[in-house]
Design a protein around this nucleic acid. Sequence first.
DNA 1: CATATTGTTCAGTTTATCTGAACTCTCAAC
DNA 2: GTTGAGAGTTCAGATAAACTGAACAATATG
Lengths: 307, 307
Amino acid sequence: MAPAVLHLNTQQLEYLVAVADASTWAEAAASLGVTQSALSQGLSQLERRIGVPLFDRTGRRRVLHPGAGPVLRYARRVLGETHDLARWARAVGAGEAGQLRVGMIDLAAVGPFGPIVQRFRRERPNVELHLAVAPSAVLGEQVLAGELSLAVIVEPSPNRGDLDLLPLWRDDLGLYAPEGQPAGPPATWGPWVTFPATSHTRRLIGRRLAEAGAGFEVVAESHQPEVLRSMVALGLGWTVLPVAQAEAAPNPLRRAQPEPLMSRQLVVARRFGAAPDAAADTLVGHLLERAAELRGPTPEGRHPVLP
Amino acid sequence: MAPAVLHLNTQQLEYLVAVADASTWAEAAASLGVTQSALSQGLSQLERRIGVPLFDRTGRRRVLHPGAGPVLRYARRVLGETHDLARWARAVGAGEAGQLRVGMIDLAAVGPFGPIVQRFRRERPNVELHLAVAPSAVLGEQVLAGELSLAVIVEPSPNRGDLDLLPLWRDDLGLYAPEGQPAGPPATWGPWVTFPATSHTRRLIGRRLAEAGAGFEVVAESHQPEVLRSMVALGLGWTVLPVAQAEAAPNPLRRAQPEPLMSRQLVVARRFGAAPDAAADTLVGHLLERAAELRGPTPEGRHPVLP
DNA sequence: CATATTGTTCAGTTTATCTGAACTCTCAAC
DNA sequence: GTTGAGAGTTCAGATAAACTGAACAATATG
């Protein structure tokens, strides 16, 4: 007769608690915004489902049976937890709770966008924020796989169409040669130390060098800008790096030519058709604001070097 | 949009947990004995109600979103409690749990039926058993009010019709006179010390004395047999008492005539239309067994004095 | 005794939930 | 490629649950 598991619903539990708390059923029904009839039928149903008499029937009137204590306690517990869940759901809807997994390429994470993440973490302590730093290609895959809600990456050369890309920041890359090798005509540049073949930036650099008429013989690779910088300093080869990374505090490289060789577009990537995520929306908003702030005070067309 | 309170039901929570535990939704659906379709629709419904994305949609496939952790934990908690409730309900159905409030008149509680109650308490520790000792009239009212599940009382003279009475035991009452006053013709008996006017037994005694042609001038009253006994011993008046109580160990009275004057019927009283109560049924069964046991070895028509 | 209050019961309607079938995607095999 | 199996969704229709409104029964209250 009874199914293997009890199939109850929260509103019948509400009926029970309301009846226990109110002095009359009519009052309880009113407080719930239903008719007496619904209350009466709902409680009969609940009693039938649990299979334990919950009420004493004196004549036509039903009063809560004291032996129903465990059921009432159960109802209160479940309703309490349900209430908590609803509160949590509201907070998630407002972007004030939940989980947020964010990816950033190294430059973004340690550059001016890192503090944005820290601020977000501070301002929304109930959002469980996780930051992953990795190359653009890796992060792009993770966004697609749903492992990340969003990532700040280098714009993929052929946009695969299933990522929603939002321009964030245009980033200058300079040309760096070993000490004492002057930048002659492009044909004389190289050999190169640069990012691994999977890297978006490497692809961009390759394309730019071809355009300029330079060769692109790669003699050493690393994902880490610091490693590339040391290699150049040691005279292993030339490189093209974001100026912010090449010319950072300890042992900065000196540009082989004053003008940036090229630039790359950093974007915020999200998956098309991803579930709405208020927390992610908020963080993206902050990132865009920060980018506008950085861009703002400088004349049109020029980009300040990232601090 | 969302109602003030979340209206969830346990089966959708089961769907969620099943999906979290199974490797495919088809498997989860099979384990629950429903179609994939039902599972899919049920989970969509659940997601809509909670208002928080629970799944990552990659193409058409949905996988549980890690941010749904709190919902999953909620579901597991609620299902756990529901499971406990179901177990409790089964136990109550078998009379092995729940609450049982029993009333007994003093003679029954301290007589041979008291140990039955104790045994029941020992054998079913999960049944919360409460024993109330009071006069029949009081207990009858409490049974009617649903405060007691059953009571062992003196059969009410006019049965009010709303009590279900089960004969348990016929109890002899003797005639007791102050020391030195022989039992002459009934017209010479008295004056009397006896139970208060509300007492069933007093009414029975009154009727019997009238039948015998004796007066019934009452000079003192008490619900306590010991008090009545002392009064008789002190010479205040005559009384009619259950022989078990009048002739109990310390300071027993001596009967004014060897034959019992009358008898009264003890019954198990329950309310008509009371909720089925397996624990009460069991206890009544034990009481009847005990009564049969006491009656059994004696010849027909005679009743042993209660020990 | 009339009358308001309270709760139940009964039709009828609305809403949920299920099944079964058609359909979309993905993945892997040929 | 293309073909087919597996997984999941969507849709229409059936079934069951829950609600409303009205009629009714039982209790208080004047």
